[in-house]
Write a protein that binds this DNA or RNA. Structure first.
Length: 503
RNA sequence: GGGCCCGUAGCUCAGUUCGGUAGAGCAUCUGGCUUUUAACCAGGUGGUCGUGGGUUCGAUUCCCACUGGGCCCGCCA
């Protein structure tokens, strides 16, 4: 099979006959090539960092053999574990019979355990001088080129396990992602919030404007179900119920094309806090991002794609409707349908649905988005753009909503949540009308949610915090696929030969 | 959905300009070597050149379609 075509779609390399022979040889010598456990005392990085204390002491390390230099009676094996690499130094005449058998049947890619003494080689390389070598897992496959490694983007995503073993910085990226998610949780937990789980499979989707994935729940009653586009409405029902502070780490699904900053399946943390408004969350976000930068990178400034992003609070505030008016003379908050259509033509926006909502949004992208490289609160949206938001105090044309931008990407979206059930019902009616006109992104009427709202919802601030995009910034990546372990890939064409024997 | 680029050995890449069924390095196999670290030296194995069709005496190379990937645009708060 060949990698270039991915014909079989199941493997990046073929099974190596010689390695099967090694397995036989090991078993003939009484050694199981797939044992149960191994006692690891140290990681590579620890040994290198604490060499002074560890020199002469016995340690056990385990990991994948990435390089192997054999010169007659002495072998150097570079063992890679999660922390990095360290050299094993093996002299044949110091090994017992079993270790020697393991050594002669070892190859690059095997997972090995080495027990021995911390020392330096003649060339000064910190090493583990082996007394015992244990086969922990015999590989059947061949690793990519030790220098260039695996660089083909498609292969890296389809065979992420190979990507991880060949490109250790990928693991660092996902460690950073994990740290960020942990940090957001910590911040919310410290506010006394509880983490909840709400349905991913929903009868009535809502909480955002987006095309859903449809599915069918045959076992229940064969009805149409949807993968959630947002968990907003469920979390609000919990606020109505008295939970006061709730959040969910939510995988949301939107049936749209992928690009470098969108993935059909993405992760955000939605958080709702009773008795607070969007000002509370602007402060919270400043604190959350700056403290993460400080804790993780030792400073408020980080490098992203050759430019510095400064997370020192306070972040810039862009009152974008006013800003846009200054630049273009257009007030998008009072734009009529007719004016929107004209602007679509005059500004060459090329929108399919040139309604005020899309035109305003498009004008922001055209004139203002490029000014959001530094952390920037883009705030006070036209009221008509925000059907689930309270109108701004003192200005009925605006809504109390902000989007936090960073690196020209939207990374959070927050409102002073609408709590007036009568007004909310009117908003749903409007949406329903749009929907009947053919806007398939307009969310359906949600009577259950309105019923809940009619019991009375306390003043509440809500926010959705992206996990994917801040991770891109913190790991200096330009594609969302680099921060998603298994990004969706198109199916490979079936191979007619795939039922035939292989190898 | 539109444009541009790409797919050659397990990996990383040459070769395609001007058509004659393919090369390198690493990996792998054999032999040598007891302090290497891109180890080294000698020899060997390995490819229906992404898929299908067309032009041609002959196609990895030219043409068309398809497929997978990347980037840009559109769409997606």
């Amino acid at each position: 099979m060949e990698i270039g075509s991915f014909d079989r779609g199941d493997n990046i390399s073929s099974i190596d006959e010689a390695k099967l022979e090694s397995i036989k040889a090991l078993r003939n010598g009484g050694i199981e090539p797939y044992p149960y456990s191994y006692s690891v005392t140290h990681h590579a990085k620890e040994i290198k960092e604490s060499f002074a204390e560890l020199e002469g002491k016995e340690v056990s390390i385990a990991g994948r053999a990435m390089q192997l230099r054999q010169m007659g009676g002495i072998t150097f094996i570079d063992i890679q574990d999660r922390s990095g690499r360290i050299q094993g130094l093996i002299r044949n005449n110091e090994l017992d019979e079993k270790s020697l058998l393991v050594l002669t049947n070892s190859s690059i890619g095997d997972t090995l355990g080495i027990k021995g003494v911390v020392m330096k080689s003649k060339r000064g390389e910190i090493s583990v001088g082996a007394r015992e070598i244990t086969m922990l897992s015999k590989t059947l496959r061949t690793l990519p080129n030790k220098w260039q490694g695996l660089t083909d983007t498609e292969a890296r995503y389809r065979y992420r396990h190979v990507d991880l073993m060949m490109n250790q910085e990928v693991l660092k990226t996902f460690e950073t992602r994990s740290k960020f998610m942990r940090h957001v949780r910590d911040v919310l937990d410290s506010r006394g919030a509880i983490e909840v789980e709400t349905p991913i499979l929903q009868d009535v989707y809502g909480g955002a404007k987006a095309k859903p994935f449809k599915t069918t729940y045959h076992t229940l009653d064969d009805k149409q179900m949807y993968l959630r586009i947002s968990d907003e409405l469920y979390l609000k029902r919990l606020i109505i119920g008295g939970a006061e502070r709730v959040y969910e780490i939510s995988k949301d699904f939107r049936n749209e094309d992928a690009d470098t900053i969108h993935n059909p399946e993405f992760t955000q943390i939605e958080y709702y806090e009773a008795y607070s408004d969007y000002e509370t969350f602007m402060k919270m976000m400043e604190e959350m991002l700056s403290s993460f930068a400080l804790k993780t990178f030792g400073g408020m400034k980080i490098e992203y794609q050759g430019e510095t992003i400064d997370f020192t609070p306070p972040f810039a505030r862009m009152y974008w409707v006013e800003e846009l008016k200054k630049i273009t003379g257009i007030d998008v908050s009072t734009m009529s349908d007719e004016e929107a259509r004209k602007l679509n033509d005059a500004e060459l926006l090329g929108l399919k649905h040139p309604d005020p909502y899309h035109v305003a949004d498009s004008l922001f992208d055209k004139y203002l988005k490029n000014k959001t490289y530094q952390p920037t609160f883009v705030l006070d949206f036209p009221a008509y753009m925000c059907p689930l938001t309270k109108i701004k105090r003192g200005n009925p044309l605006r809504a109390e909503r902000f989007e936090l931008y960073c690196g020209r990407m939207e990374v959070a979206n927050s409102y002073s949540e609408l709590t007036d059930p009568t007004y909310q019902r009117k908003m749903f009616d409007d949406q329903e009308r749009e929907r009947k006109k053919g806007d398939e992104e307009a969310p359906p009427f949600d009577e259950e949610f309105l019923d809940a709202m009619e019991y009375g919802m306390p003043p509440t601030a809500g926010i959705g915090i992206s996990i994917d995009r801040p991770t891109m910034i913190f790991t200096n990546q330009t594609s969302i696929k680099e921060v998603i372990l298994f990004p969706p890939m198109k199916s490979l064409p079936p191979n007619e030969l795939s039922n035939e024997k292989d190898q």
